[in-house]
Each structure stands twice: as C-alpha cells, then as structure tokens.
Amino acid sequence: MTGTERIAKRFADLKAEGRAGLVTFITAGDPNFDVSSSILKQLPAAGADIIELGMPFSDPMADGPAIQASSQRALNKGASMIKTLDMVREFRKSDADTPIILMGYFNPIYIYGVEKFTAAASEAGVDGFIIVDLPPEEAEMRAPVENAGLSFIYLTAPTTDDARLPTVVEHASGFIYYVSVTGITGTKSAATQDIETALKRLRRHSDLPIAVGFGIKTPEQAAEIGKYAEAVVVGSAFVNKVTENLDKNGNPKDGCADAVLGLVRDIAGGLKSGSPATV
C-alpha cells in the first residue's frame, strides 16, 4: 500500500463510520525523543485518525509561540531529520494503518536532499508531507513525492481566492488542509460560519477530503467543525500539554505523555459524538 493509498483508505473508513477524523500534531522529539516516541505510538489508541509529525526547525515562521518553543525544545534535545524518521520507523512496527504526515519547513529537507529524503521517508513509513513554505509555485518536491507514491498536501487559506484555488488544488493529493484563519498556529480561532462558507467554496474546486486546522483547541470546537469537514487538525493544544508538564529544567514530569493523550481522547470523544460530515 502506498502512502497515498493509506491516506485514502483512512478517509474512506471515516466516511463509512460517518464521522470526521482527528488529525493530531505533535513535534517530533518534544520534549525528548523517548517521551515523544511514546506519545506517538499511543496516539491511535487515544483516538488520532491521522498523525501530523512536526519536523523541528529553528525558524518556524508560520507557527505561534507554542510550536516555536516545542521545536526549540526538541532541537535542544538533539532532534534531527534522521531521528524524526527513526521515530516513524519505530511507530510503523506496531501500526500499519494510521497515516503519518510529516509537517515542517523546506530547508532541512533541502539540505538532506529532496530525492534522498523522500526515499528515506517513504521507506520509514511516511505517507505524505505538508511543507509550509512550499506553495505550488515552488514545486521542487512534487515529482519526487508523487513518484514515491506519497501525498503532497497543500494548504489553502482564507486569502486563497477563487482565482487562485485551481492553481493550489491542481496537484493536491491525500487531502486539502484548510488553514481556517489568517494567522499563525495556536492563536485565534475562526467562526464556524466562515469555515462553512469557505469549505463550500473549496469543494467547488476539489473532491479531496478537507482537514481544517489552526486555532482548534477544545472538544466542542472540534465537534462543531467536524460537522463540515472530513477531518479536524489540533496541534498547539497538545503541544501546550507538553509545556505544562515540564519541570523547571525543561525535562518532562511523570505523566507528560498521559496529559497529551488525555486531551487527544477528549477531543476524539467530542468528534465521535458530533454529527457526520455533510458530504
């Protein structure tokens, strides 16, 4: 099964279940490799349907303070692109079904080598990529990713108008990630009605499933947005749980992983009780 097929199968299953999926974001290596790896392995059981694994970067320009700090913590503890792939490889030993999407910025991939990294990621069990600073105009990862059978997932934003949407969705695969606010991660939240309107517009341009992210922090918000989207992305809220469970030296307290997983369970529960997506 290719990565793109694994993603498609997950969305087909969600549709059959009649509910929206939960996409969980965590930063690889935050607060350290072992705890991060342990959280990752337990995410599916806690209710994550798709996993976004953040590749730490020194200058995460589209991220808010929570994810910036988590990237820095991970890097301080020795996170690297190689270790991020190790974590995925480890995860795949016990889970063959949950799609893993690597999310991050282009420079570390460029330095690793685009072809080389795509191949290594594919081998490790990665299914797709969200590269924040590669808009469709900078297409240098597209061919290697497609050739490996993986998905390159594009972001669309409130600022992406009807004239531009065809350019963005033309090469999209896996799903479309709708950034529901103009802003950075973990800050403001969009009004549900604006999201509903935006998704209707988006669906005129693409048949792919849509995941909505940015500013979604609570089970209630997730359940509400889950009525309109195939999936809901939560990130900074989980990262904040890590932050809250560090000692004064920045090391994880006992129960750090459980705190994150507890919130995953709560939000997943919210989604399961919500109404199915309207499509």
Binding site: E137, E138, A157, V179
Partner: peptide, 22 residues
Amino acid sequence: EDGHFGLFGGRYVAETLMPLIL
C-alpha cells in the same frame, strides 16, 4: 518571472501570504 536569480530567490512563503505577495 518567478523571482529566480539562477538557483536563488523564489517565493517560499506560506499560502496565506502568497496571494498578497502576488
């Protein structure tokens, strides 16, 4: 026209900014 000087330059920004850059 895409802002490249040989290998360099370009528009490596988040989609939210892309319409504004254009």
